[in-house]
Amino acid sequence: MKIIPIILILLTISIILPCQAQTAAEWIEKLDKQMFYQSAEYTALMTVHSPGGTDRYFRMQGKVVGDQFALMEYLDPPRQRGTRYLKRDDNLWIYFPRQDRTMQIQGHMLRKGVQGGDMSFEDMTESSSLLEKYEALLIGETDTTVTIMLESHDMTVSYPFREILIDKRTVIPIRIVNSGVGRMPIKEIITLATKRFGDRIYPVSTEIRSLLVKDKWTRFDIEEMKFGVNFPEDTFTKKMLER
């Protein structure tokens, strides 16, 4: 599953499946598989809430193909308008229209939060399967939900511990808690609302909340979404980024 590329999460398809999964790994595999989609186009509103009550709003439009390509552009606020992000596999570029300059985000820059929010650029580019780096343990189950603990021994992952609460019916992550080396919780990701698109249900409102900083969160609300879009071949190129 692509928990974090948040945008990807939001666009991820999940199919209502009967609760036939058994092991933790199987649940994760199912999540991984169901979050995958061929292509989508969306408009979303990102709300960055800072402690003390100030909210900043960013409206964006994105095009996504699988977990390989994504192109996102800010529509609002005016200061950000036209700023574009291009993801190709693990690479990320930003284009600033005012300076007409393109910059590749790498190294420690990847770890910075987008617009000062809780989602980092790294989160946006991560695209490998969770089971490659994590071991899954089933740590709780009810009639409707299952709780999986993901543990990594690879300390290059941002969060060595991730606890995921999955809705058995929709296979949508209800709540994910990301923790650091010493299992101290750092962030939680909560699905606030879902919506049915044809025969599938998708999360359309997601909140990333800091568990260390009081009253700090970032929310994504999908305003419009279309699946199965055929993009022209050159959509995810630097040429289109800088057009």
């Binding site: 690879d154 290059t156 992952v157 990301n178």
Partner: peptide, 8 residues
């Protein structure tokens, strides 16, 4: 290595 490691 990269993993977050908060400490109180």
């Amino acid at each position: 290595p990269g993993a977050f490691n908060p400490k109180m």
